[in-house]
Design a protein around this nucleic acid. Structure first.
Lengths: 208, 208
DNA sequence: GTCTATAAGTCGATAGAC
DNA sequence: GTCTATCGACTTATAGAC
């Protein structure tokens, strides 16, 4: 396998990722992926055999990227307050740069929940647990050390993820209602970082 | 148009709604809708002319239901604290009973933001403004009367909607990670009502 | 590895009988 | 109004030449 192969295969995969996340599993066309990659449609089958297998590869990559993002942030040894601020900033930045990923993944996982096993389960062990357990452990430790008040980890994690993520799902709706320009949208996303941190930290700060 | 027509047309529309919200615009099949309604596929074209027109009708209905829900709750003349608790309870109940609607709508609106005009804009005027403006007005009034501390309405509304809604988008993910049974899921949803209200009210209660 | 040509199947849509 | 039959377009996938 020479460098030409690798780059062709890679550009197909990258194009597949873009088309699939934009159009969805059913709306994506092999022809559109081939056109986007600038290669002949037959090469998609040559490298990935079928649309189904190519789709699974894309899902695997997308989930893996999301998890890596969570993991990387979660391992930070900083105080919980710093960790929380960093976690929120990183996630919102990441989602802003990959706006299509989120809606795509939520939709495809709702249609076929089994799909999550495509990319997620095989990656838990080398990382020392699933992302939920890692975050949960981080929170428990912060409670024990008195950095935050005692809380239910599950509630807190759902609050955190909801507040971080959902604004991106709302953007199409918000855009139609208040019709913001590019700068206003960026400002909105930026202000969300402060607001989410403020709300959550106020809730869990010790000695309240 | 006799009663038979109406019931056939209605049962097609209801089936279309179920199939479209479950499979999406691209994944839905006219044959599947016909089978679900127990009628011949040709009748779908007889009553709705094309898949596109049927899809638009479904989107219109779904958006209309969501807005009615928001409007109905928003017009409650109760104190803001009561209003907020009721709003959260109603919305979470509504979403629990229509789990497919949310993911479907977010996905289709992301693919085609123009779509929102299909069901939403024509319904603003008779209701005295769009849902955002109605909610916003309710919040401003509560600030003015001293029921809550001064807040940015936009931040609060995004927090509220995010916390209410996103747990339903997360359920497929949560289910794969912690594998809950039916009762645990219902308990999770129920506990969200209390948690969301607690978090938000603590944040906006006056005199803090 | 990459292209041409085409198979095989699916799906939306309509004409026409009743 | 409802059904039978069928058309035509589209899409995935593969066989085979180079």
């Amino acid at each position: 396998m020479n460098s030409k192969d690798r780059s062709t295969e890679d550009s197909i995969l990258q194009s597949a990722r873009e088309i699939f996340t934009r159009k969805g599993r059913d709306g994506a066309r092999m022809q559109a992926i081939a056109d986007h990659a600038g290669v002949h449609k037959t090469l998609l089958h040559y490298y990935f055999r079928s649309k189904e297998k190519l789709f699974y590869r894309v899902v695997e990559e997308v989930i893996n990227d999301l998890i890596s993002q969570v993991i990387t942030t979660s391992f930070s040894p900083a105080p919980f307050k710093t960790f929380l601020r960093r976690f929120i900033n990183n996630h919102i930045d990441f989602l802003e740069q990959h706006q299509d990923m989120l809606g795509f993944l939520l939709w495809e996982l709702k249609k076929d929940p089994q799909l999550i096993q495509q990319g997620i389960l095989k990656r838990f062990d080398p990382l020392g647990g699933n992302p939920f357990e890692l975050l949960s452990g981080r929170i428990k430790a912060a409670v024990k050390s008195g950095e935050i008040r005692p809380i239910h980890e599950m509630d807190f994690i759902i609050n955190l993820v909801s507040l971080n993520v959902f604004v991106f799902a709302l953007i199409p709706v918000i855009s139609t209602i208040i019709n913001p320009n590019e700068n206003q949208l960026r400002a909105l996303v930026k202000s969300r970082k402060k607001e989410v941190f403020r709300l959550l930290w106020n809730d869990i700060a010790p000695g309240k």
